[in-house]
Amino acid sequence: MPLHNVFVAEVRMLGWELKRYLFNTGAMVVVMYVLFLGMFWGVKSIGGPGISSVSLDAMVIGYVLWMSALFALQGTGGVVQSESERGTLEQLYLSPYGAEVIFFFKSVTATLFNFLLITLMLYLTMLTTGRMLPVNLLFFYPVLFVSLLSLTGIGFMLGGIGLVHKRIGAVNGLLSFGLIGLMLLPVYPLNGFSFIPFLAGAHTITEHIVNGASFPLWWYLFVAANSVFYLWIGLVVFRIFERKARSLNKMGQY
């Protein structure tokens, strides 16, 4: 009973859901695009001719990063909530590989799919705004994937809380919009803000693409360590709440 069959099952599940909810997926892309256009033209008209091209470039990248962060944040928390609502959550707990593995694979497949979406969004926004940025996808994807693992950890925390408290939409919403403000914080050189999940990775990508900045090796290691730490802490919190949910028989309740 190899583990890769679990991953294949999650990939197939994603495919079936996309097929069933094709309209929804299409609508999501349109909404993301329209939202960006609104923001872009809004900022441009308020800023007037004084607004620098660097700021607009940073906005394009920032928006794409924020979108990918939203998907990662909603990961496990969203899965726990929707599986609870459907009544299938306990079935996931009957997998011999454990629900954590399933949730992790769900996050990874969702992230990979989101890479497709945000790449589409990235090029659409660049074409629309006329700001063609030199995006090195071989740099962009790996750094983004590693950075997003920190938010996957936060997603696990929210998922664990969701197992016991069920509805966590408000927290999710708060974090999602809070992240917009947080992404403006200065995180380099290393300071207290650098330890906030995802920010170091997001800054690295933005600076690299917009200003062509390069960073020392230790900084990349710091970005990876930050992600591993939050993923680990997320799993610990998830397990604590999972034990509580199993002790109180909350798993099958909604």
Binding site: M1, P2, L3, N5, V6, V8, A9, E10, R12, M13, Q91, L92, S95, P96, Y97, I102
Partner: peptide, 11 residues
């Protein structure tokens, strides 16, 4: 059937 077999490790 395919999904639930998959999460039990079956192809």
């Amino acid at each position: 059937l395919e999904y639930f077999a998959g999460i039990k490790g079956l192809s």
